[in-house]
């Protein structure tokens, strides 16, 4: 009886050690807390078991999941606000970005700043994407940082659109 529980708990700890994805890790942690509270119960510590089951397998996983949910934002800063890209939901640029963020389960945050300094924006302000309009060819330039994992995926999505040019910059030397 005890040994089965101990084996299960150690099994779950080892799974957690090897797990890379955070959401699954949190679910394993909830199960781990449940098993732990069963062991506390078997050791005649009813009060501790009640506290552990309420905190460890209900409250803390919720906190963890909310904290994780806050870390899936896709921050876009735009210098342009016209027919192609605006606050309206039917503008083509907005639709494109929404399709992209929905497919990766991200929350889309868009800010319009017409006179922002792009220099240092990626490093200091945690921006994922900057949209500018080029004066030379009239295309919309999407700037992303090279270290971001998502830039290949967004680039593949935007490749067909003739209105968009894509640029990838190193994190510290920002194009202006």
């Amino acid at each position: 009886m005890y040994l089965i529980l101990y084996g299960l708990i150690i099994f779950f700890i080892i799974i957690m050690l090897r797990e890379k994805e955070s959401l699954r890790l949190i679910i394993y942690f909830a199960v781990f807390s449940l098993l732990m509270s069963v062991l506390y119960f078997l050791y005649h510590a009813y009060d501790v078991a009640l506290a552990e089951i309420a905190i460890g397998s209900a409250l803390l996983p919720l906190f963890f999941i909310i904290a994780l949910g806050k870390q899936k934002n896709f921050v876009v800063v735009s210098r342009v606000e016209d027919g192609f890209f605006s606050e309206k939901e039917d503008s083509p640029g907005f639709k494109l970005l929404e399709r992209f963020t929905n497919s990766f389960n991200l929350t889309l945050d868009i800010f319009f700043e017409h006179h922002m300094h792009i220099k240092g924006a990626f490093r200091e302000r945690n921006v994922d994407l900057i949209i500018v309009k080029s004066h030379r060819d009239g295309k919309y330039v999407f700037i992303m940082k090279k270290s971001s994992v998502l830039h290949h995926k967004l680039q593949r999505l935007l490749l067909e659109d003739p209105r968009i040019r894509f640029e990838v910059v190193e994190e510290d030397e920002i194009y202006d």
């Binding site: 510590a45 460890g56 803390l60």
Partner: peptide, 26 residues
């Protein structure tokens, strides 16, 4: 990963609690 570190802090804490409870168990 920082979240993983926080989770393992909780695992460590639960194990220490279990240690004390086992020690005083009849």
């Amino acid at each position: 990963h920082l979240i993983k570190s926080i989770i393992f802090l909780n695992v460590l804490e639960a194990a220490v609690i279990l240690f004390f409870l086992r020690l005083f168990y009849l």
